[in-house]
C-alpha cells in the first residue's frame, strides 16, 4: 500500500499538470486556504512527458521545502522537453494552515501521462509522504 496517489485532468497536458499540482497541495492542506500572494518561477527538463511530470512535482516539493511555502496557483507552459511555470502561493503559517504531512518526493509508481479516449489528458503518480 503506497502512501497517496495524485491525479490531474485537463483539456491539454499543461492543464493536467496544473491540476495535479493542486492535488499535490491538497495532500498537505486545503488549496483554498493558500493565498496566491508570492510568485516564483520553475523550469525543468526531461526527455519524455512522464519524467517531465515527476520533475515538475519534485520541483514543487523542493521549492516548498527550501522556501517554506505552500502553492495554490499554477500556470504551466511546455515546449518540447522543457517545462516553464509560474507558481503562486504563500509562506506556511503553521497555526492557520495546519499542514497535514510533509511530502518527500514524487515517485515513478503508477506514473502515467496520456491523452485518454475522450480527449482529456491525464497526469498521475504516487507521492511518498
Amino acid at each position: 500500500m503506497a502512501d497517496i496517489g495524485i491525479r490531474g485532468y485537463g483539456e491539454a497536458m499543461t492543464a493536467a499538470f496544473e491540476q495535479a499540482a493542486t492535488a499535490l497541495t491538497a495532500v498537505i492542506v486545503d488549496p483554498a486556504a493558500v493565498s496566491p500572494t508570492q510568485e516564483i518561477r520553475i523550469r525543468c527538463e526531461a526527455p519524455d512527458a512522464e519524467l517531465l511530470f515527476v520533475d515538475w512535482l519534485n520541483a514543487l516539493i523542493y521549492e516548498m521545502a527550501v522556501r517554506n511555502m505552500l502553492f495554490s496557483r499554477f500556470s504551466v507552459r511546455i515546449t518540447g522537453a522543457v517545462l516553464q511555470a509560474t507558481v503562486m502561493g504563500e509562506p506556511i503559517d503553521r497555526q492557520r494552515h495546519r499542514p497535514t504531512v510533509e511530502v518527500k518526493g514524487a515517485t515513478y509508481t503508477e506514473l502515467r501521462v496520456a491523452r485518454q479516449n475522450d480527449g482529456v489528458w491525464l497526469a498521475q503518480c504516487v507521492i511518498d509522504v
Binding site: L51, V54, D55, I61, K104, G105, Y108
Partner: peptide, 24 residues
Amino acid sequence: HQIGTEFLKRMVLAAPGYGITLPD
C-alpha cells in the same frame, strides 16, 4: 529525500547505457 529524487532520475536515464532493462 532529495538524494533519492535526483538519483532515481539519473539512474532511469542511465539504465539503457548500462544495458539494463528496468522492469519498473
